[in-house]
Design a protein around this nucleic acid. Structure first.
Lengths: 334, 334
DNA sequence: GTGAAAGCGCTAACAC
DNA sequence: GTGTTAGCGCTTTCAC
């Protein structure tokens, strides 16, 4: 049975309102009283009941975080960032994993929306309309997704692809394969834009082998088609696909980077651990989570549309060169 | 501005209490009234405010989940399981990542405890006393940890190690190295117990190379010492260490499984993707999360100590044989 | 600077 | 079967 504000008030010999003030607006009460109240609160181990406070202030001190799939190592990083930053602000985080199920997502969002001050949404698959609708009903920050009028923190997907292509071109590659991810995803679209722009600028040939699941298995499935293109290098939609490529290429006796160079995107921990270690564009995932929290809190304090538009983050990726692109292409190959 | 119970009451032409009853105890109100109330609620998009309800019922419909580090792939799996099962019961999940910081953990737990019905704790590092203290103040379910009188879902660590050793012995190994994890961890202690028991039973020699960080780097650091033991096989505290071993062994030109067989534990996704693919004992991590939720909910409904003791889960691991133990040891090696 | 009173949205007694 | 009343723990007028 936790102590209530009345217990503290009784012990300190003051009224509940004074306790409330002493704790949340310290400078408005007499220092002596404040000290007495503090001591009483301490002694009783008193912590204000957030639900009760929220009922009256309209602020719960909680935020919600929705991710599509925690099994994809991309998202735990984001969650960790959100978590860490939220704790700094003494805000608690509700987490929901939608299991890539757009329908479940809608329900979860509705349920969560009632008990939080705002929502951070990683929703690669939801439609713009759905997201805009949610944003109308509650405070929302989007991660790696841009929707008109909704604050968001995004990655510089185009820039990431440019770095990848520039790196491969510098190594001498002239024919580069692309293994796509989920077609509907926002980041996929933007990665492709950057990819083609870079290929055009460098005057190199891009061969699209199609869209695959953004998983290890997806990469395994894509590998043979990549080989068939005759490309000397391949860029994958994400690291998981790239690592799947590596595995299947090894099985087929194709040397990486000897016969084929491989580049991923995301910079998940696993990329360091693959064989050969994977060259990738590291996206600051945890940072994205942290910024999303700051953004959300800023919007809560000032829901002015101008603020919202001004507070968009665009995070740049960093090319990490590892062994999977270590060698120039064999000029004997077509 | 979301609809309140009074809005629904007004629209349906009944009192707020009737609305409340119609929604939570449907069979106690007249079917006709119930239908009217339901329609009104629907029309207004009414969802009861959980905070307000919790204030009076004493139940928030929320649970808290504390994990030490989301960057360790073990924990996202547990979180996913908790998440999925909680959603089934219409319970929301607060997530806290303590960043392996025991001090932060205490604070987080206190803060969370106020706004949840119960806590699921993955706290490999907290002391028994700390955990017992938390359990006295709030409803707690422990994961992969056993403390007197506290409901818990654990893995059969001993059994897992027995399977690993039996597998290696069957392949002909007689001298097996052990790379330990964090000394203070509960599962480490139990893995060691199973390990030595199995070694004794099979009459094989175990060589302990010491304790290492439960990470890829930890495995890299341990590899050379493993080689120096002259063992033909090595069991690691977890998959991350095992994968680190694989990497360093490859660098040194030591063939796995040709020269040395490697076994991990946990069964993280990455284990399939290593080269060679890692033989491991797969622990049902997601299942553990699911069961933890069921356990917690059961305890909430019936905080009787007998129930608590009866409701302990012990989950068995499953040996997954992959290439890292594919071949019998070379008899030429000592 | 502090206390009394009202009320956030909801449910649980208690009447009827 | 339904309405009225009271109150969960807290903050916030409004007096003083």
């Amino acid at each position: 049975m936790p102590a209530t504000i009345r217990d503290v008030a009784r012990l300190a010999g003051v009224s509940p309102s004074t306790v409330s003030r002493a704790l949340s607006l310290p400078d408005v009460v007499n220092p002596a009283t404040r000290a007495r109240v503090r001591a009483a609160a301490e002694q009783l181990g008193y912590e204000p009941n957030r639900a009760a406070r929220g009922l009256i202030t309209g602020r719960t001190g909680n935020i919600g975080l929705v991710v599509p799939d925690l099994a994809n190592p991309f998202f735990p990083s984001v969650v960790k960032g959100v978590q860490a930053r939220a704790r700094l602000h003494d805000v608690a985080v509700f987490l929901a994993d939608t299991d890539e199920d757009a329908a479940a997502e809608a329900g979860l969002v509705r349920a969560l929306a009632k008990q939080v001050d705002g929502l951070i949404l990683c929703s690669p698959r939801a439609t713009e309309e759905e997201l805009a609708a949610v944003a109308r009903e509650t405070n929302v920050v989007l991660v790696n997704r841009l929707v008109e009028g909704v604050p968001a923190v995004t990655f510089d997907n185009e820039g990431g692809m440019r770095q990848a292509i520039a790196h491969l071109v510098a190594l001498g590659h002239r024919r580069i394969a692309w293994v796509g991810g989920p077609k509907a995803s926002w980041s996929s679209a933007h990665r492709i834009i950057g990819l083609y722009a870079a290929a055009r600028d460098h005057g190199v040939k891009l061969v699209d082998v199609g869209d695959f699941a953004p998983t290890y298995e997806g990469g395994m499935a894509a590998a043979d088609q990549v080989v068939a293109t005759g490309a000397t290098a391949v860029v994958a939609y994400n690291d998981l696909i790239a690592i799947g490529l590596l595995a299947r290429l090894h099985t087929r006796g194709i040397s990486v980077p000897g016969d084929l160079s491989v580049v991923g995107i995301d910079g998940i921990a696993m990329a360091r651990m693959s064989r050969p270690a994977l060259t990738t564009v590291r996206l600051p995932k945890q940072k994205a989570g942290e910024i999303a929290v700051e953004l959300l809190l800023a919007v809560l304090d000032d829901p002015d549309p101008d603020t919202i538009i001004a507070t968009r983050g665009k995070l740049h990726g960093e090319l990490i060169v590892r062994d999977s692109t270590g060698v120039a292409p064999d000029p004997a190959r077509p």
